[in-house]
Design a protein around this nucleic acid. Structure first.
Lengths: 231, 231
DNA sequence: CGCGGCTTTGATGTTCATCAAGTAAAGTGG
DNA sequence: CCACTTTACTTGATGAACATCAAAGCCGCG
């Protein structure tokens, strides 16, 4: 959070989420005054676990990961946040410190909105408050659903689930570049780096996917979905 | 949700959470008019996955579990909810249908508050809105933290984690009755029934716990905590 | 050019689910 | 109330799934 740049007003922001449509012009101007913005390179840390929460983070473009060290010194990735969503959302209202480390895994552009400004709006604009609630519930539900699903599958199922997730939810394309390393994939779905690689290779040999470095192309989406479902 | 009884007013309710302290007398009276209440026996289903959400559920006393069937037909327990908390909270604002089945695992007494009444209060009382947000974030955070922890441990660590959790968070006592069967314990921490039993026996043989049917007494809390931490 | 991090494959051993079989406890119906 | 059925609990044996170790190739970077 070093160098900080301001851009066009919120009202004109093409990345503005539906959330802010509930606000009046006046309220949007207020937001503008309590807002900063910054671009992050791939790999840059946005906030560190344990830092004090001053701002609400809105991801305009790019992709970030939320991760955390467990007690036995292993790193875990909790989730990958999509553009046009609020990140680090969960923790914001319950804890004054970030519970997770947030890192850009693609060049990302993030808006920092002062917590106090958001709180004020929640207090004064009921529609806005309900919308924020809805968004938070969505994000939580999604994370919990993903984790339950992943834990209940064996390795092949987990990898298939992940590939389907990237293709459908993140890139909306059967061809995409993996934004994270094989090791990080393992950290996301609780398995060893070696097995991530092994199973990706298996899928390649079985003709389900094509791999070139980080580029993945899904050749048999239906089969992957089936493996993801019953694996 | 069949037979329904009304009790003393919210304002006089000794199980009232801190949440409702943010409300005026008038608002509490409004709540009263949009509220019902019912007792559940152990094992009774409170709401079924897929049912439409009409009410906000507040657990006054007892204990309930939130569970869900995964695609491969296995039942999973997402969490166990403590008294004086809102249950089924997550889903309420994001989805019109319950995502999880809620079942009483101890005799429980639950208040049903109409969603629309709560939504109205959120719209008109900013402090209340912020409080609800905080509570929801807390519940979500807790669930996510638990799931990450459990997934990252091996079996001994998971059982230890669970025992510590029951003793500290639920019963605040080193001696307690397990509210769920061994099979359900397995569904909660992703392991087979047989191994739940095996590891409980191991802990017994190692002098860490005493077991008599469903009654557990923790004899060496520190060691369990250590196993939970590094297992 | 050499060091470190990422990727890949093979070999090995551990962890764990599953199967089998038996006991105990708790409902169920005559 | 007792035979009967079902569900929960328990232990041992087996094999499958998976982590770990080892070694080697690859690439970017100082």
């Amino acid at each position: 959070m070093k160098e900080i740049l301001t851009t066009t007003a919120c009202a004109a922001c093409s990345f503005r989420s539906l959330l802010f449509d509930k606000l009046t012009d006046e309220e949007l101007q207020m937001l503008d005054r309590h807002r900063t913005y910054r671009d992050f390179k791939k790999g840059e840390v946005v906030v560190e676990e344990g830092e004090r929460v001053h701002t609400f983070l809105y991801l305009k473009t790019g992709l970030v990961k939320l991760s955390k060290f467990t007690l036995n010194k292993k790193n875990h990735i909790i989730s990958i946040a999509k553009p046009k969503t609020f990140i680090g959302l969960l923790t914001v209202f319950s804890d004054p410190y970030f519970q997770y480390t947030i890192t850009a895994i693609e060049p990302s552009s993030i808006c920092f909105i002062e917590i106090e400004a958001i709180k004020k709006l929640i207090g004064t604009n009921g529609f806005f408050a309900l919308d924020v609630l809805g968004k938070i519930c969505n994000v939580s539900d999604e994370i919990i659903k993903n984790r339950i699903n992943i834990c209940s599958k064996q390795l092949r199922g987990r990898i298939a689930y992940l590939l389907v997730y990237f293709a459908k939810e993140i890139y909306t394309n059967t061809k995409f570049n993996l934004p994270i390393t094989r090791r990080e994939l393992g950290e996301l779905i609780d398995m060893s780096t070696e097995n991530v690689i092994r199973i990706l290779s298996e899928f390649r040999k079985d003709g389900l996917i094509r791999i070139q470095g980080n580029q993945i192309e899904i050749l048999n989406f239906d089969m992957l979905k089936r493996i993801s479902k019953f694996g």
